[in-house]
Write a protein that binds this DNA or RNA. Structure first.
Lengths: 708, 708
DNA sequence: TTGTCTCCCTGCGGGAGACAA
DNA sequence: TTGTCTCCCGCAGGGAGACAA
């Protein structure tokens, strides 16, 4: 049940027609095999940008890129083809002992069949439909992630726990006492237990972790800007993970020993395995932002559907270390040629010579086709970006399809379709509502790859067929299928929740078209659904802008996009009170994705028929913190005191209707901020930290010396 | 010059006839090649028990033992012979980064010639004469080693520097000041610099290291019982090493990464190298006490000269971790058989099945012939132990030489003949003066292997030919040639010095025979010499006994053994004031070892003609701390307030003459204590530390976790 | 609601002499 | 001479409410 999934602005809701009988446990028939580390925690730590190939899916492995990654360019791989078509045999989740960095070990086996298809130019989707959202399970609803503030990491005092997070994730305290406190025990990725004193004190009262917190910060070498995440798994156990800020990635200081094993030392064995068509392993660091050397086959295929030529403008989702770079990742293709015509003739790896619009970043002057998205007036994405434009099955999104396009169909990304815990982060959706063509659109779209839930739900509002939704999801313009997945939990900063609400398609679609200037953008990523939604409330536009404090934890809510998940949860809560608390049958969604007549479709069909009265009906049934939730919603979706319709930060619905361009700018701004949530890296507080907490830093330096 | 070699009870003196023109630098044509670590420091850290094969010498390598050492007993080595005859190609000195443990990488190459000789039963000494004491150089006279007390390692206060040590090793302070202090910078094995504040304060005044000391203790994870050693090398630079107590060997917690490389992972490559007769490397940990898998060829040969049979009693120098086990290492041979008749037929490795007299220790029930020394009434050693018995060249020390004995000649141990910094530790010498036969003798002799200087000088007093000295040195009874070498510096605990005094042979030999009940035992290890000695003083017996404090640092002085080195130094000081302070030409000794008519022989001839008036003449010329030295000697060789003739701990000369048995018991006791100097491991202070310094220990635990 | 600040207070530990072995 | 003890004192840092954003 979604009982515990309640969080601040987005709510996990279930389709009432789906079966919720199976309890949600932390194990199950998971797609990824049980590994050394807790899977939910792994995904929580990996963050929403993670893109993991699925077991059983078809991918392309680029030895050239692999050799590029490891410094040894002299390594032999001469007899390897530039593109090795593989089947993913296994994906194992791991975490570095030294720095808690998560990584995955991907086992690949060369697949002649895929290669054959590739050579024959055959377009195939090879029944990956079932694989897309399939087999995902094990929700971990009680979770929060908070970027550490300077106070959190200072040596004076402990960790300030967001109230809702504490109430959601921690055992409840006896508030009758003068200073309620308890001991929390949380297990990290390595199974290490950490004890904290959780106390509720201060004037005004707040939740704090005191004793034990400092030790944790020091041991983990956390600095302000890093993020910690707590999650309560099914049996009530607490898990504890960290996400380091991009700048101070210790991974560079401590080269991952296990990862290293797969990157540097075993290139020869990889080559040998490929030549003998045996299984080989590749290390996959989801937080490393280098070009991936494993790309889903269909993404690879689709990227080549474009005709890249000099002069073509493009956008790139540039996952730089510095999150701020993210909003400037457009460029111009100035040539198409082999990177290494001698050793890798015909390789698509970085076959495009590009010039970036801004020359600040020391970016590669070469990119691979699948890394970028063409932009420009004539580019394909606009074909479905125009509101109301219904795309039909088989229509090609690109204008110049000089390469066979994969057949339409339910072909989602192999790299983990957003499945759950997607949160409403609607601002970038304004691209859809404000098609300014070319660059702006593409810029938006490229950003959207982080939030596939939005895209999907967006499309669900446009297309009349669920399958079209999937189809569109696979269009290059929508991220070339390489959707960064928060497979299990896109844990969001601060008060954000871990699930989302699918958006109904019928009335919603109409509404969407009617209000072509504004888009209601419910979160959709996890394919959860809610039958009823407080739709009236949803239409309140709201936006939270990250304020001056860079490490503040805020939710970004698109103006005019309905922050309905809260209500939807309430609604669902009301309707499914009898279900077990933590059980949500995602598996069923996985097995029956987007089938007409399925439970999910029912939700989609009815989702947008929000009834505020339903919301009112259920507000009393909310178990904990319901007063706050209700008051928030009554105040126009206040989030932690911020009104979601606050004119200061958000635009009213009317504003957006008339000032879509302004809204778009908001959207642009948002994206940078949102990226910062993922890579919490405010420069200022980090600097403050390094000066105000010299002692702790010194200790870290000492440890660094010791460890190296 | 030996100017700076002065220390408390033993003195480095030079033969006045030798050339002292070449300054003693820390480099030179050293036998061991310059390696990553400071050689003097390495040897200082390795301690006096170290036995390193010499470059160029012939050794026997036992793959069987190698496989035994590494846990992988399934490793292939089936095609290797049990005895691999090798030539030592190189010896490289290293130190573990993690724990400062010293080790050596010995490069061996299979040598057909040696093998051929072995197969033909040929006895050879193959010109190793020159190699024995050859090429040793680079004295590092200013050095001291102190076992850390609880106070030294406590968090309150610093390190109490023994006065003499401070005066000898550290730059002198301006004692005019109220609290004289200076900054010391010392370099450890890895080249890391450590800064300490050296202050002379307190009432009464004492030398202390304060600021910086705690950091050093914590970084190195020192506990009370560990020992630190400072040495001042030629250019005045300070070196800083540590010797950990045996019990808390961190080496077990941190398996030596580099060492590991040579023990576990490369057995296959070793086998391959041997089969192709190429160079291979073996890790050699001088402080690990397991049976050595590399044994000098001549030692191997001589050990097989004995006819081992069931019922034979033996003694074994048991280098257990726990030093206290050292005095009970006798046993009975109960069988001779192959350890592994299938895989290693005919192997001498642990071919003797033994039963130990005490069954406490979990010792091997099998030993190798070269590990033990036969004992019993009929055993050979007594043949030259009887005072006055002159052995002639070619006489066999063993009674049943069923194996060809190596030809007589100047064939010292390949494993580092004691060269310098041997200190007078005469107690075990009483074996010679009190021959009780069999077991007692052998026990003494086996102990003597630690102090080959004594043996050599002892013999020099007996034999009329220098070459006989070497010959005797090679007899099995005198340590089977496997002499633990303090090649460069046997750094002694506390106030002990780092050089020794050769003992004249002519008059000394006479004297020796005259006073058959007591032996004057000047230190001899470094082949330094003094022409004149305050011999009257020397004959004062003195002994320091380790008092109740287990970590106290004391010198053990045999009653009735003359602590003459002090005076000898004074004498020499007087005579050679014009020489440069730190220059001692050891090289010349190395080039001309024991040649008749050489400078050294002159010394030996005249050494015992001590003149107390000479001592009196020079006392005023001693540069620093001379008053103390003089007063000490005048008081009957007081050492730090302990009278060397104190009846409480030592026996007077007369006592020893009439109570040699008692003296022998003293000797037995001494040896255990001396071992403790090498492996300073008092259990009590360590326990105290772990309770009183919990914080520091916790930090270590943290680091352990981080480092593993 | 929560980030930051300041204040309080404890305890660690460095540094000194006292004292005794 | 030096190991141990105790005392002094500075300071790091944990923990609390105040205050404001």
């Amino acid at each position: 049940m979604v009982f515990g999934l309640i969080d601040l602005n987005t709510v996990n809701t279930d389709d009432e027609t789906s079966s919720f009988d199976s309890p949600s446990s932390s194990s199950g028939n998971l797609e990824l095999p049980a590994s050394a580390v807790c899977m939910e925690l792994w995904h929580a730590c990996a963050g929403p940008l993670i893109s993991l190939p699925r077991k059983g899916s078809a991918v392309v492995y680029f030895p050239q890129g692999h050799l590029e990654r490891i410094s040894d360019h002299t390594a032999l791989a001469s007899d390897l083809p530039p593109h090795v078509f593989c089947r993913v045999v296994d994906v194992k989740l791991h975490a570095e002992e030294a720095n808690d960095e998560v990584y995955a070990q991907v086992s690949l086996v060369p697949d002649n069949e895929i290669e054959q298809k590739w050579k024959e130019g055959e377009i195939e989707a090879e029944g990956e439909e079932e694989d897309t959202v399939g087999a995902e399970k094990s929700i971990t609803p009680h979770m929060f992630c908070k970027t550490l503030t300077a106070s959190d990491t200072s040596s004076h005092g402990g960790f300030s726990v967001p109230r809702r997070a504490a109430e959601d994730c921690f055992p409840s305290l006896d508030y009758e006492q003068q200073r309620p406190s308890q001991e929390l025990v949380a297990k990290d990725l390595h199974g290490t237990l950490w004890k904290f004193r959780h106390i509720y004190r201060g004037q005004p009262r707040r939740h704090l972790l005191t004793t034990g917190w400092s030790a944790f910060v020091n041991k983990k070498k956390l600095v302000s800007g890093d993020a910690v995440l707590f999650l309560r798994v099914a049996d009530g156990e607490l898990r504890l993970g960290i996400r380091r800020a991009a700048q101070v990635k210790i991974g560079t200081a401590f080269p991952a020993p296990y990862c290293q094993q797969f990157t540097s030392s075993s290139m020869a064995s990889v080559a040998h395995a490929i030549s003998t068509r045996r299984v080989f392993n590749i290390c996959y660091n989801p937080r490393a932002s280098s070009s991936e050397i494993i790309v889903p086959y269909h993404k690879f295929l689709k990227s080549l559907a474009h005709s890249f030529s000099a002069g073509m403008r493009f956008k790139m989702h540039f996952e730089a270390e510095d999150a701020t770079e993210r909003s400037r990742c457009s460029g111009l293709v100035i040539g198409v040629s082999d990177l290494d015509p001698v050793r890798w003739p015909g390789s698509k790896w970085r076959c495009l010579v590009v010039r970036w619009d801004d020359m600040e970043g020391n970016r590669h002057t070469r990119v691979s086709p699948w890394e970028i998205e063409p932009s420009g007036s004539a580019s394909g994405p606009s074909s479905f970006l125009v509101p109301g434009t219904k795309r039909t099955r088989g229509s090609l999104p690109t204008t110049k399809p000089d390469f066979p396009i994969p057949r339409d169909g339910n072909e989602p990304s192999d790299f983990g379709e957003p499945s759950r815990f997607q949160v409403l982060q609607g601002q970038e959706i304004f691209c859809f509502s404000t098609p300014h063509g070319g660059q702006s659109q593409s810029q938006c779209l490229s950003k959207m790859r982080c939030f596939p839930g939005f895209r999907t739900s967006m499309i669900s509002g446009v297309a009349s067929n669920i399958r079209h939704l999937q189809e569109d999801s696979g269009t290059p313009s929508a991220g070339t299928g390489f959707v960064e997945s928060s497979r299990f939990c896109k844990v969001l900063q601060g008060q954000e929740t871990s699930s989302s609400l699918p958006y109904g398609r019928g009335p919603a679609a109409n509404q969407f078209q009617e209000n072509s200037g504004s888009v209601r953008l419910p979160n959709y990523g996890s394919h959860w659904s809610a039958q009823g939604q407080g739709y009236t409330q949803m239409r309140h536009s709201a936006q939270l802008v990250q304020e001056s404090s860079p490490s503040s934890v805020l939710l970004f809510q698109q103006p005019n996009s309905p922050p309905c998940n809260l209500q939807a949860l309430h609604l669902h809560q009301k309707k499914r009170e009898t279900s077990s608390r933590d059980s949500v049958d995602f598996e069923r969604y996985a097995r029956e994705p987007f089938q007409s007549g399925s439970a999910l479709e029912d939700v989609l069909r009815n989702g947008s028929s929000g009834q505020s009265e339903e919301y009112n009906q259920i507000e009393s049934s909310y178990p904990r913190g319901s007063q706050n939730l209700v008051s928030m919603c009554k105040k126009g979706c206040m989030l932690f005191g911020f009104s979601l319709i606050d004119g200061k930060h958000g635009a009213s619905k009317e504003d957006n209707l008339t000032e879509s361009t302004t809204s778009y700018n908001h959207g642009t701004k948002f994206l940078a901020c949102n990226e910062e949530q993922v890579h919490p890296s405010p420069p200022v507080p980090i600097k403050v930290m390094s000066s105000s907490c010299t002692k702790a830093r010194d200790m870290h330096a000492v440890r660094d010396v010791l460890l190296t």
